[in-house]
Amino acid sequence: MSDFDVEFIDRGDREARFLVRDVTPAFANGVRRAMLADVPTMSIDAVRVVENSSVMFDEMIGLRLGLVPLTTPPGEFEIGDTVTLALDVQGPATAYSGDLVSSDGMVEPADENVPIIDLKEDQRLEVEADAVYDTGKEHAKHQGGVAIGYRNLQRAEVVGERDEFADDDPEIVRGVIEDDGELVPAEAFDNDLRNRYPDSEVRVEDVPNAFVFDVETDGSMSVEELVLAAVDTLYDRADELEEAVQL
């Protein structure tokens, strides 16, 4: 197992940005795709409606419940495992995702304040729902990652004085730049290189095989758990291939 050179730029529970060096673009994209499609999460998949006198059809309620992210500790479940949740709200009130009662303490709604349906006088919503452990490949509601992307690290290098009569156009860069080994997010200088290097001519070029990942999760797991689980699925696939081609 080779080591990766990883450096965090921003680090939060649900959002992070980190730099990975010495990986090929193909591998970087493989990790991104694994985070979206191959890391399983719990999500409500089947709903038994006991009573629904709200203004929405059962199917619409089912769709909304399915999209609520549920916390999923990695390594605790197998694909296809189910956990039952129940929701019982009597109007006048709003049914929130936080009203879901789970039969398993590990699987709880990650966000408590998602409105499911607004109930008026004498309306009631009582459902039993089965959450299923599956991958984003099966249905987008199982995706743990949200809007995951990566871009090349860029190196900024001062190559001389700025021409006195140079055009006063903005020099926009996005992502993260490397300046003498220091990593600077482009937002720090409002994405305009002129703010950081007022009187110099700067050359910006991509650093080969260094990628800055932007990872955000829907709350079903932390960024760290998501990235590690994604890389593990890649290893599992490689092992599977190795086994398949053996004589």
Binding site: L67, D111, E112, A140, V146, A147, E216
Partner: peptide, 9 residues
Amino acid sequence: CGKVVGEHW
């Protein structure tokens, strides 16, 4: 993108 926005409404 799939970000949960309902909770902020």
